[in-house]
């Protein structure tokens, strides 16, 4: 019963998020509105952490399985993939390394500058 109630709260936030997606004319998916709503709910204690964390942890721990159906969808868009397979591979790989280096260097610089000041 406990988990059912927790899931109901998470689903309610998801529903509110879909309403927001419908009203707000921005290219933002409902799930992102929901994430922000939930975070605000937790910070303001409108939603107490212990009222959602059991079901939420279960969903987050198993989130990978939720992507399988859409990944299998690749069999329905082989043509689109063929048209961009090389750019897709190159861009995915190269930018990952660039982002890693820039993020690491910038935050390391800020941390060390702060440490030097202190």
């Amino acid at each position: 019963m406990k988990y059912l109630k927790q899931l109901a709260i998470i689903l309610l936030v998801s529903l509110l998020a879909e309403i927001l997606e419908y009203i707000i004319p921005l290219p933002v998916a409902a799930s992102v509105y929901g994430l922000v709503l939930m975070l605000v709910g937790l910070i303001t204690h409108i939603i107490p952490l212990e009222k959602v964390e059991g079901a939420a942890d279960f969903l987050v721990q198993n989130i990978s399985i939720l992507f399988i159906p859409s990944t299998v969808g690749i069999m329905a868009c082989v043509e689109e993939l063929k048209q961009m397979v090389i750019p897709l591979l190159v861009i995915s790989f190269v930018t990952t390394i660039l982002i890693m280096v820039v993020t690491g260097k910038v935050s390391q610089f800020i941390i060390r500058r702060k440490a030097a000041k202190e």
Partner: peptide, 19 residues
Amino acid sequence: GYISFFLTPATVSLAIPLY
């Protein structure tokens, strides 16, 4: 598709580890 149904609730739940 019934599995994908849980994608939005699971994304909403990412707020918990962030919190």
